[in-house]
Design a protein around this nucleic acid. Structure first.
Lengths: 187, 187
DNA sequence: TGTCGTTTTTATCATTTGTTAAATAGTTTC
DNA sequence: GAAACTATTTAACAAATGATAAAAACGACA
């Protein structure tokens, strides 16, 4: 997805303000398997996915638990770094060769203080992420594992096609074996 | 908690900007049991809790599931109303007699467009809520019911003292009977 | 095509949580 | 203080999920 569309979808800006953001954005590519964010590190950039798919995971005991997927158009953000300038707890792994837009957090925060439109763009950005986070929270708390799997299948079919089931199982809050059982029961 | 402290904790403002927000805030009180927000309704205000405690819940089948508690200093927001001007899915019930600060969403959004400091205050407000939402998500996905109960006991002991266990159980994602079992096993 | 390595499914048994109902404890009201 | 109501705990059984191991399916690659 093109950067203009990504920016506009969050909050429409006048051309000068939009150009200020775009001037801070660079395009990069990374191969499949690249670890974009490392846990216990303060990240200095946020990214937007032009092409590809990524996951965020953290360790519980000795095994990884995936808690986020991002595809074309989605932002990749270590919230603890972005909001609090603190170490994050997650790795972000690219699951395909990816084309990304990179935006330095420090530059963006400078723009927040200088341009009211960009400040409101940043406000909207967090508001939209907050809505997504709340929806996922409700889904985890209200729905059974089977319902969550069916919802993912319906709302984000490309994730199930592009990502291996062990990651999806942990994203749904169950083991891979449980997910296999659920899939077998649905058919 | 006083409104000055609540505003400052989110993001420090110069006096004129702060006064603009404060001029839009009124103080109200409601008795225990009052339903502040109704599901399937577009709410027009957000609140901050001066004194008291509240919960947000929604219905799954025929029973209520509590997914949020707020105490002194916390904001009460129907995110769908605040962010998207759409109907929310939750009721908010006051669990004690409450003193609240009320802020009309329309007035706040007007200020967002006029005052860059307030726009950044609003940005920070959502960022902080987002961090809280993500922490809760991680807790639901990574921890067992027993671990979640112990964390609540440690981080928010006043909730367990002030709220009945049936609400806490649904907040933890388990039945009241399960919570009783967990409590019995801990001692 | 065939082999190796990875991913997914299936099977078995243990553990956790849900469901229903009854018993106990605690609160409110008269 | 007794009765009525509500909240919490306990008990018994059912259902869902976890853990471990083995089998099957799938992919990469010589």
């Amino acid at each position: 997805m093109e950067i203009n569309q990504i920016i506009d979808t969050i909050y429409p800006l006048t051309t000068p303000s939009k150009n200020l953001i775009k001037a801070s954005i660079t395009e990069t590519t990374f191969p499949k398997g690249h670890i974009l964010f490392k846990a216990n590190k303060i990240e200095t950039s946020i990214y937007f996915i032009k092409k590809g798919i990524a996951r965020a995971y953290a360790y519980s005991e000795d095994h990884q638990i995936t808690f986020w997927f991002g595809t074309e158009g989605d932002p990749i953000v270590s919230m603890q770094s972005y909001v609090n300038h603190q170490k994050g707890y997650e790795d972000v792994e690219l699951l395909e060769d990816c084309e990304l837009y990179e935006l330095k957090i420090a530059q963006l925060q400078k723009l927040f203080l200088e341009d009211i439109q960009i400040a409101n763009w940043g406000r909207k950005f967090s508001e939209l992420e907050l809505i997504k986070s709340e929806e996922r929270l409700i889904s985890l708390q209200f729905n059974t594992a089977t319902e969550r799997y069916l919802a993912l299948l319906k709302n984000h079919p490309s994730i199930i096609q592009r990502v291996q089931l062990s990651h999806i199982a942990s994203y749904l809050g169950i083991t891979q074996v449980s997910l296999s059982r659920i899939r077998a029961n649905i058919k």
